[in-house]
């Protein structure tokens, strides 16, 4: 065991995979010499050299297009898109090209590639550098999407993503980069499509993702003090989705809540809630509850951003209200 920050876990994750497989390359803006604008990739250039760890121009279409073409011709490349908001300028590459090419060619083209990106709010960057875009990605058939909520998951899920034969978007909550946690020594390899029950409880299932995991855990602690047993499920992987874990917990508790750091409409929780409603409706003891940001762009100032993103207070309050 060693204590690692999330940002250190990112570089350890990339290094673990580059060490193992010489066809793994890593490119992006300011990722090599500068070590990443969030310092998530420090030391990789020195360790793996300027061919395998490489700075690009500010050309998101070229970056994502290059890893697609590279994957078509024998590499297992990793691209960093500095802020997930920038997906909007290379969305053709992701949504039209990477996601669809295998299907359109009836399986002729394999795209073993990873796009990792800093996502979400909580760091006062304003509306164009704070979005949670995981729902954009999960809406496109052909993309796998994972959101690690702690350093160990970052390494394990990232390794699973690199080793996966399909394109995977790794969404890193930038509010968690400074988070520290004990991480096991040695190689860590997880699998895609497995949710984790972080805390058991019998009264309500709280389904969470990314930075909201920690707020939900705080809320669960406080709910416990009031005699409410909250079961917290870290979804971790939106595609593939571990619906069985979610449905089993909901069947047990009879109540289902999502906490999402994204605007209300079409957040990931809407899809999960619809599955719950369709498949275990008669096991529910009350209405499904979605806790999201309001349907607005995120404001910059802390006074307003903190109002927008679900807090432990809000989670406690909404859960209690839903239980009557």
């Amino acid at each position: 065991m060693a204590e690692l920050t999330y940002r250190e876990a990112v570089s350890r994750a990339i290094a673990q995979e580059m060490e193992r497989d010489e066809t793994v390359y890593f490119i992006g803006e300011d990722v090599a010499a500068a070590g990443g604008v969030f310092k998530t990739t420090e030391g990789l250039l020195e360790r793996f050299g300027p061919r395998r760890v490489r700075d690009t121009p500010i050309s998101e279409q070229a970056i994502v297009g290059a890893v697609m073409g590279g994957a078509m011709n024998g590499l297992r490349p990793i691209a960093e898109i500095m802020f997930s908001d920038f997906f909007a300028v290379c969305w053709d590459m992701i949504a039209n090209q990477i996601a669809k090419t295998r299907y359109m060619t009836n399986g002729q083209v394999a795209l073993p590639l990873v796009i990792r990106t800093a996502n979400g709010g909580g760091v006062r960057f304003g509306a164009q550098h704070s979005q949670s875009v995981e729902a954009w990605a999960m809406a496109i058939p052909g993309l796998k999407v994972v959101v690690p909520s702690n350093p160990t998951d970052m390494i394990g899920l990232f390794a699973a993503a690199v080793r996966d034969p399909d394109p995977v978007i790794v969404v890193e909550p930038k509010a968690l980069y400074a988070m520290k946690a004990d991480v096991p020594d040695g190689e860590i390899v997880d699998r895609l499509g497995a949710a984790t029950v972080l805390r058991e409880g019998s009264d309500v299932t709280i389904c969470v993702l990314g930075s909201m995991v920690h707020r939900a855990m705080d809320a669960a602690e406080r709910l416990a003090a009031d005699g409410i047993g909250a079961e917290v499920i870290d979804v971790r992987s939106l595609v593939p989705l571990d619906t069985q874990a979610i449905l089993a917990s909901t069947t047990k508790t009879g109540r289902f809540v999502t906490v999402e750091e994204s605007p209300r409409l079409c957040g990931w929780g809407a899809e999960v809630a619809s599955i719950v409603a369709e498949e275990v409706f008669y096991d529910l003891d009350g209405p499904v509850v979605r806790i999201t940001t309001p349907h607005i762009p995120l404001p910059s100032t802390d006074a307003l951003e903190d109002l927008a993103i679900p807090s432990p207070d809000v989670i406690v309050e909404r859960v209690k209200a839903s239980m009557g």
Partner: peptide
């Protein structure tokens, strides 16, 4: 769209 992708395939050709 295929221009960056073609460049990427050429990148892999060069590296490999």
């Amino acid at each position: 769209a295929h221009m960056p992708i073609a460049a990427g395939a050429a990148w892999a050709a060069k590296e490999r």
